[in-house]
Design a protein around this nucleic acid. Sequence first.
DNA 1: ACCGTATGTGACCGATTAGTCACATGACTG
DNA 2: CAGTCATGTGACTAATCGGTCACATACGGT
Lengths: 221, 221
Amino acid sequence: MPSQTFFNLSEAKRKAFLETAIEEFAGRDYESASISRIVATLGIAKGSVYQYFEDKRDLYLFLIDYAAKERVAFVSGVPMPDPQQGFYRYTQWLLEMGVRFALEHPRLNQLIYQAMFGTAPFRDDMLQRLRDSSLQLIRDVIAQGIAVGEIDPDIDLDMTTYLLNVITNEFGNYLASKLAIDPQRLLAGDQAQLDNDSLRSVYSKALDFVWHGLAKRSTAH
Amino acid sequence: MPSQTFFNLSEAKRKAFLETAIEEFAGRDYESASISRIVATLGIAKGSVYQYFEDKRDLYLFLIDYAAKERVAFVSGVPMPDPQQGFYRYTQWLLEMGVRFALEHPRLNQLIYQAMFGTAPFRDDMLQRLRDSSLQLIRDVIAQGIAVGEIDPDIDLDMTTYLLNVITNEFGNYLASKLAIDPQRLLAGDQAQLDNDSLRSVYSKALDFVWHGLAKRSTAH
DNA sequence: ACCGTATGTGACCGATTAGTCACATGACTG
DNA sequence: CAGTCATGTGACTAATCGGTCACATACGGT
């Protein structure tokens, strides 16, 4: 809950502030993240930050909330597959969501992931809700897949939801490190070239693993 | 590379120091971990730490190294399955390794995992070697499974190794949170009761997922 | 031109950090 | 007992932290 002052800021200033703050909090602990460093980077006075936010905790929780909303907006922007195409496609869509968001918004992804599964402080309701809502989407897809009879009903729903969430997130990290040959290109907006061609072929391997596991397949898709 | 002084310490003192230091580094950033807090907890002078270790970095890298060696020792202590039982059992063994180590040595597991995949500093050779050696075991099992024809040869070896490592690690976390009803009991050494009975049945679900994926199974094991 | 309000500022505070060092203590030797 | 060496100590330094506040600046209305 930032002050009105924060929202009165020019969009340029607000964007710059958000970007710098997210960068600061994404890569490190809550404790290690430094307000002093943020204001030094931005070239503004420290007092300004405390006119926007109550304290460090207030800023942090706002950033988490912001990142979560951005993620929801991002997911909404990618059309879900046609239900008639089966739950293999739904699973593909889930994976694609995670990977694309991780590649296109790496800082936001780090922030969310770290808040949910890292050593985040504040056993806040908000964080719990973030965690729950993030997992709910995955859980729903799996549950429906089971109901329709395309997903094995013997799986443990809770556990599989958890693992699938971890996989989608970490697979993004894997790709990022794998493509680390020139990570600049990706961040610079050159991802369009990669997206629709090679990216899909890369994560189709991950999808196959999620769908069929390690075992030697008998049927193909 | 601690000084000789550190190894001259009585076992009781050395153990106490290790335990406290690991506890301090396991839950937080490298930057957030505090030497001052360690010495305060132990009730020793700060100067002592700097007679054992060159600096904070030296201590941290030693702890990582120690944790890694403990893990290797732990893994060596659990017998591998009979090769004739197939690679399903090998995969089971891999999972069991990760889960048991995570449950019996949660702090060490956190330390290792955070060093390998967290926001650890020091792009050290040592960390890279730790990462490589940890993944190598998994990679070997998969590669052999492919060679023997029990694991699908179309999987991406690198990616699957990475994901399997993540899964074994995070599954430990999942179990830990799932069993959080009384985590004290586990740490208190009461795990023997859980181990051979319910534990195996719980992670057999994870094993099924890893082996067969989400898809509805046709054949059973 | 004047005033009131909103926004920006950075010196300053108390707390905490990693790391140092002159000194105390203990143990063993001659 | 005296001397030597390893070990333990905690006050101290310089840097950094989150947070405060008295003050400066900018802007809009009359």
